[in-house]
Amino acid sequence: MQITGRVLAVTGAGNGMGREVTLQLVAKGARVAAIDISEAGLAETVALAGAHSQAISTHVVNIADRAAVDALPTAIIAAHGTVDGLLNIAGIIQKFVPVNDLAFDQIERVIAVNLYGTINTIKAFLPELLSRPEAAILNVSSMGAYAPVPGQSVYGATKAAVAQLTRGLHSELMATNVQVTVVFPGGIGTNIALNSGIATEAEMAAMAAKAGKGKPRTTTPAPEAARQIIEALEKGSYEIFIGQDARIMSRLSRLSPKRAAALIHSQMKDLLG
């Protein structure tokens, strides 16, 4: 997809990868409908866009709210005249606890945002995207979709569902004008635990120190992850893996899934106490 002049809806645009994708898209000449639950986060994204800020419209929406999401295409078309692409980047993780200790309200919240949020936006935007001469859907899954992380089982289940949903959409839309891409990030340098509402900054620092017994973990900087996401959008990629960890674990999970699970367990088990 050609980026310049396109109108792209980006969820999770108020922080992390969604923010970086938004900033890089407008720098490349796109217009962005920035969607996030945080009004303050969206305002900061617009401020960071500087000279490109006029290319951004902001939409404070909880993507788990189906009625609110259904109203988004009309609002975005009113602001920009059309919409050419949907980038589902918003997502949350769960508390770092086993399923046995995870309350149902927390389970339902993760499913509502990660899975139903993605379904809600796809259902809302797809009719308009099908009417465009060229359009795109890009959904962010996770390395946790194929490499089980202790204490993130429900999160991983939602991201596995997002991955399979995206692959199914690709097959359903293969003969149409809508390209479909799934993204599998590994560790990305964002404040996802803080933004998910599961930890304070102090708790995040403690978790980082505890993970891997204090050994440094390699993460991909959010701006680099955003660059790769946009590149995948431009190329119409079927799927991409962001970070050496995501690529290595993808191969190992296919070759020896039990060994991959044991390796991740050995690195992450200390987070569970």
Rank of each mutant, 00 (worst) to 15 (best):
E44V: 06
N195M: 11
H59Q: 09
I137M: 04
V60S: 01
L138T: 15
T190G: 09
V61W: 00
S253A: 10
A206N: 12
L102T: 08
K215F: 08
I230V: 12
A226W: 00
P150Y: 08
E201S: 11
A261Q: 03
Q164C: 05
A40V: 15
S142K: 05
S171T: 13
R251S: 10
K215A: 13
I264N: 10
S266F: 07
S250P: 06
A261N: 03
V69R: 04
A68R: 06
P150S: 10
Q164H: 14
I248C: 05
S250W: 11
A64P: 06
E239H: 12
G214H: 11
F125H: 04
P98D: 03
E20V: 04
K210I: 13
N191C: 07
Q164V: 13
D70L: 08
A157H: 05
I77M: 05
A136E: 12
R251M: 14
L271M: 14
V32G: 00
D270G: 02
G243Q: 08
E234R: 13
L86W: 09
P127C: 00
S253D: 04
A193E: 15
A9Y: 05
L115G: 01
V140A: 09
E39T: 12
D270I: 07
I77C: 01
G187F: 08
A47Y: 06
A205H: 12
V69T: 06
I76N: 01
N177L: 11
A27R: 12
S53Y: 08
V61T: 15
L42E: 09
S250F: 14
S196T: 07
A75D: 03
Q106N: 11
A43G: 12
A260Y: 03
A202W: 04
S38Y: 13
A124G: 10
I230M: 07
A34N: 03
V60E: 01
A33T: 03
R19K: 06
T4Q: 13
G117R: 02
G156A: 15
G236Q: 08
R66G: 02
P98L: 11
P216T: 09
A135D: 08
I37Y: 09
G41W: 03
G214S: 10
